[in-house]
Structures are given as structure tokens and as C-alpha cells.
């Protein structure tokens, strides 16, 4: 029977019933197969060297040491943080502004929501291909307009700055909607009384934003930032299709570099070490951010 019927009181309640483990077993199995076991394979690779034929040599922590001292890794990591920083700095404020400007009621609400959701429904590689064609200097709409009509030299296959501008713009186009929709959900959940009270208190528009809307959006914004951080930090498909990491290595982000090492050079050991470090950084930053943002919530 349930632990609650046990007569001995509080201190025995928690230890009596072991049946709960039974119910989490299927989930544990599932997680083991889709996460734990593949991950342990990677751990296994990261401490060994192989030349094929399923022959492995023990290497200890050499790959980790090598990677952490590698300029190539540092450069990719730097590019990765720069990219994530830029798109967060654009998408979050832009998303808030668009959400604030969206209508709260009437027939335009569904229209806006659908328009907003559209970019998110397009598959990553299609987005990459779309922007690739869009920006081609001779045949792309934007590329032709820039180079031949406006006379601005714009070629992302040649110029690193152009490549970055294109990738950032593409990501903003693709993902700002997510921030908008989350913020919008936060905004519509604010009861009218708050706005009415603010009106009566003589609050300015800025005060309404600062003291009512922003605090009420805090939770959804936390989620939005977290999702955008993880997603952009792990970005692969779009830059791969768009620039392939170039020109040179200028848009070679961590995941692109990782694939180059693992599949291009078939260095499984270093690639495994890199994925673990990559994973650890993503996890650490997300955890730190989430902990900091929710620190005051309990009080």
C-alpha cells in the first residue's frame, strides 16, 4: 500500500516504498539507449587512438590536452561565442520590440502569429539553400541588387565580413520569431488591471515596460535566451549549406570544425574529445545562466 498509510510516522514514510523505481525504469532504459550509451561510446573514443580495422590504442587524456592547446580550437570557439553573442544581442531586443508592437486582440492577431511562425517551419538546410541563392552575386535577388544595382561589393563566398553578415541576418530571420512568440505569450498573460493601475499611477511607457512588462516576461525570456543560446551555439546545417565554413575558415563554427575532424580527417579520438568539451561548455553556460536567472524566484 501507499507510504501514507504507514502508521510509524514521518521519518519512515520516505524509505518504505521502493515501488516508484519500477515506474521510472522504462524512462531510464529509453534514456540509456538514446543518450547514455551513445555518449559513453564517445567517452570511449576520446581516450583512444584508432587507425581503422577496429583496433584501438590507449591514449589517456592526450586528445584533451592537445585540443585545449590548439589554436584551431580556440579560433573556432571564439567564432562560436562571437556568433552566439551577436545573434542574441539582435534577436532578443528585436523579439521584444516586435512582441510589444503586435496587436493584442482582433483579426490581426492570428495573421501576425502565422506570419511570425512561418520562418520557423522551414527546414534548416532549406533556409541555408534559400539564402545561398538569394545572396549569389550574379543571380540572387539580394546579391544582384547589391552588386549590380547599388554598386556595393557584396560576395559572401569571397569576403568574410559579407559571409558573417549573411549568416547573422539569416539566423535573425529564421529565429527571431521564436523570441517574439514566447514574449508575446508572456505579454498577453498580464492582466489588464496592471496597465490600468499604471495609468492611474501616472507611469510612463518606459516605466510600464520596465516595471510591469519586463518582469512579467522574465520567465519566458529566460527560456527564449536559453533556447537561442543552445541552438545557435550548436548551429551546423545553415552555415554548412550557406558558406561551408568559408571563405577560408572565417565561418567555421565549432560543429562545422568538429565534423571536419571526425568525418573529413577521420580523427575519431580528437573529435570525441572535442565533442565532450563542446557539450560541457554548452551545459555549463546554460546551467550558469539558468541558475542566475532563477536565483530570486523562490524568495
Amino acid at each position: 500500500m501507499g507510504a501514507g498509510t504507514h502508521p510509524a510516522g514521518d521519518n519512515t514514510m520516505k524509505t518504505q516504498n521502493q515501488r516508484a523505481w519500477f515506474f521510472v525504469l522504462p524512462v531510464l532504459l529509453l534514456v540509456a539507449f538514446n543518450a547514455l550509451i551513445p555518449m559513453m561510446t564517445v567517452v570511449n573514443y576520446s581516450v583512444q587512438e584508432t587507425f581503422g580495422n577496429n583496433v584501438f590504442f590507449w591514449e589517456g587524456l592526450r586528445w584533451f590536452e592537445q585540443l585545449l592547446n590548439s589554436d584551431r580550437f580556440h579560433a573556432a570557439l571564439g567564432r562560436q561565442f562571437l556568433f552566439t553573442g551577436i545573434i542574441l544581442a539582435i534577436e532578443i531586443p528585436l523579439g521584444i520590440i516586435i512582441a510589444l508592437a503586435m496587436p493584442r486582440q482582433g483579426i490581426w492577431v492570428p495573421v501576425c502569429l502565422v506570419l511570425m511562425a512561418l520562418p520557423m517551419l522551414i527546414p534548416w538546410n532549406v533556409v541555408g539553400a534559400m539564402w545561398n541563392i538569394f545572396t549569389l552575386p550574379d543571380i540572387g535577388l539580394l546579391g544582384y541588387l547589391m552588386n549590380h544595382t547599388l554598386g556595393i561589393n557584396y560576395d559572401m563566398t569571397q569576403d568574410p565580413v559579407a559571409a558573417w553578415v549573411t549568416i547573422v541576418t539569416m539566423d535573425v530571420w529564421h529565429w527571431t520569431s521564436l523570441v517574439v512568440l514566447l514574449c508575446y505569450a508572456g505579454l498577453v498573460s498580464i492582466p489588464d488591471a496592471y496597465y490600468q493601475a499604471a495609468k492611474i499611477d501616472g507611469a510612463s511607457n518606459w516605466s510600464v515596460f520596465r516595471y510591469i512588462q519586463l518582469p512579467k516576461m522574465k520567465q519566458v525570456l529566460t527560456i527564449a535566451i536559453l533556447l537561442r543560446f543552445m541552438d545557435s551555439f550548436n548551429i551546423y546545417t545553415e552555415p554548412f549549406v550557406l558558406t561551408g565554413g568559408g571563405p577560408g575558415n572565417s565561418t567555421t563554427f565549432l560543429s562545422i570544425d568538429l565534423v571536419k575532424i571526425a568525418l573529413g580527417q577521420f580523427d575519431l579520438g580528437p573529435a570525441a574529445a572535442m565533442s565532450l568539451i563542446y557539450f560541457a561548455i554548452t551545459l555549463l553556460v546554460s546551467w550558469l545562466f539558468y541558475t542566475l536567472m532563477t536565483k530570486d524566484d523562490g524568495k
Binding site: P191, A193, Y194, Q196, A197, Y211, I212, P215, K216
Partner: peptide, 9 residues
């Protein structure tokens, strides 16, 4: 108002 309106932060 019916439900207390305070500025949380």
C-alpha cells in the same frame, strides 16, 4: 483592483 496590483521587482 480585485487582484492586488503591485510592481514585483
Amino acid at each position: 483592483f480585485q487582484f492586488p496590483v503591485i510592481y514585483d521587482t
